[in-house]
Simulated scan of single mutants.
Amino acid sequence: MNQITQTAPTKEEAITVALEKLGVSRDDVSIKVVEAGKKGFLGFGTKPAVVEVTVLKKEQDVKAAREQEVVEEVAELEKTVVNDSVMDEEPTIKQTNEQAVEETKSYINVIAKEMNIDDLVINEKREGKFIHLHLNSEKAAMLIGKRGQTLNALENLSQLVANKYSNSFIIIKLDVGNYRERRQESLEQLAERMADKAIRTGSKVEFEPMSSFERKIIHNALSVRVDIETYSVGTDPNRYLVIEPIK
């Protein structure tokens, strides 16, 4: 048996039972959360968790599966927060921004534990309505994800949570190991190379799909050039940027 779909009251219970049935450890499988489960209230609305556990054979498969598993977990958490934000009643009295930041940091820690990150340290810096939260962990790569996908999702989550509890609008900015700064520099250098390529070949150059934040970095980096134009094509999450020479 190489794959099993398991149902249990919670996700972790379902994973544990599935691993026992397969006779393998967590490091040897990929886990897809089919249904995250819901505790309900006073016995109403309870939903069991459903997971699909697949035994992996190759080391590269294990690494790829781990990255995808983290992305899926964060995406599931993001959907949960969005739904809760819509369904929950607004607090009668808004908390202070200070309390809102603490709620946000607490929630990030909950997510980190869901990702099996137990050494997370959050450093805080405030600049007016901007709240910069710097995350530090030995598992920094998991917090960043492929092309910053996990970090972007965590930032969206943090924004939702913070403004649910704040008494005025605040903007949450997350970073891990100065990833944002390094990524911006990398994108600006890539933008110049691709713009030069477009001029050299006389043809438009297309980038891989990127977040709106990263597309904006490239747009800004090339905004002073008069020999090319940039524009975005498609719909998120597959929206991508194009550089086209002006003839």
Rank of each mutant, 00 (worst) to 15 (best):
V121T: 13
M210I: 15
I217M: 12
T96H: 01
L135A: 07
I217Y: 08
N156P: 04
F41D: 03
V81W: 10
G234I: 02
I93Y: 11
V50C: 07
M87T: 04
I171W: 12
G148Y: 05
I131M: 13
E52K: 14
Y240K: 12
V74K: 04
K105G: 03
E208T: 09
E69P: 02
V50G: 02
E155V: 08
E90T: 06
T80M: 13
L133C: 10
S30M: 13
Y231I: 08
E90C: 00
K105E: 05
V53P: 04
T230K: 02
I228S: 00
G234H: 01
A221W: 09
K216L: 11
I172V: 13
A49W: 11
S85F: 15
V74C: 08
I199H: 01
T230F: 08
H132E: 08
L42Y: 05
E155L: 09
P237C: 06
K57V: 14
G23H: 06
V33H: 01
L187P: 10
E102V: 06
F213C: 01
E206M: 07
L154I: 15
R26G: 00
L174K: 02
N116H: 06
I199S: 00
K47V: 13
I243A: 05
L135W: 08
Q184N: 14
R215L: 14
I170Q: 11
T201Q: 03
Q149T: 14
R126C: 09
G128Q: 04
G177T: 04
L42T: 00
E155D: 01
A8G: 02
L77M: 12
R193M: 03
I217W: 07
D88S: 07
R200I: 06
E67P: 01
G177I: 11
M1S: 12
K58V: 04
K247V: 14
S158G: 06
K21F: 12
E98S: 10
I15F: 06
L190A: 04
R193F: 02
L160V: 04
K105F: 07
E155H: 00
A18W: 14
K63L: 15
I246F: 12
Y165N: 08
K197S: 11
N83S: 09
E138C: 09
G45F: 15
R225L: 11
F41E: 05
L120G: 03
K204V: 05
K57L: 09
V24F: 08
R147Q: 10
F169R: 11
T235E: 13
I31L: 10
V53Q: 03
L143P: 09
D227L: 03
E59F: 08
E244H: 03
N156D: 13
G148S: 09
S203C: 11
K38N: 11
G23D: 12
Q159C: 09
N220T: 14
I111Y: 07
